[in-house]
Amino acid sequence: MMNKVAVILWKDLLTEIRSKEMVFSMLVFSLMVAVIFNFSFPPGSDFIQDAAPGILWMTFIFASLLGMNRTFVYEVDKGCMQGLMLAPIDRIVIYISKLLVNFIFITLVELIALPLFGIFFKLDVLTSPGQLALVMLVSTLGFTIIGTLFSAIAVNTKTREVMLPILHFPVSIPVIICAVQATTAIFQEQAWSVVWGWTKIVIFFDVIFFIVAFWTFEFILEE
């Protein structure tokens, strides 16, 4: 199964490297938000210190929605989804490969955008790099798991650009809240137990979301 995942992943990485549609749009959006907030609020102020984790995660989530919206659009617009569905592979292989490609690209954008946020907002983003990396990985995985599933639903609707955020936000609220709280704890140099407390909840939702995606994806694809 994993070698088929790798085949689709290779194809998606190659097409994205050539088209640059997904990463470019996510990156430009993230940088624009950072610049706008930098002009709107004085860098280094108490307000920006308090609001930075929230701004950071909302930026990443909005940017990821731009990217995840493209996940299945490319396949459906070119009729390639049918080609994938005709292949002798389990439907879940398609889901896992799309999840991985989304996760890779969103993480890449976060890695580029995070230091720039640090510079613009005068934040020390490297206070606890290990803790921040863990929180970012599990939180990104959480909203990517659910976003990839919902993008498969949204792609077959007339208002697919609007549909994904409408479906995504209500479900991903627990992950967003916990990610913001954990990041705040890291930036405020609180104890590891506080960070881990929020991170555990994100991991719990990651597992739940993946189980739901595993059981429903085949049905979503066929109907």
């Binding site: 194809k11 190659l14 097409t15 070119k78 009729g79 390639c80 049918q82 005709l86």
Partner: peptide, 12 residues
Amino acid sequence: VIAHQTFLYDDL
């Protein structure tokens, strides 16, 4: 399956 859509990726 051969259809009017080719199932081919433009960027490959």
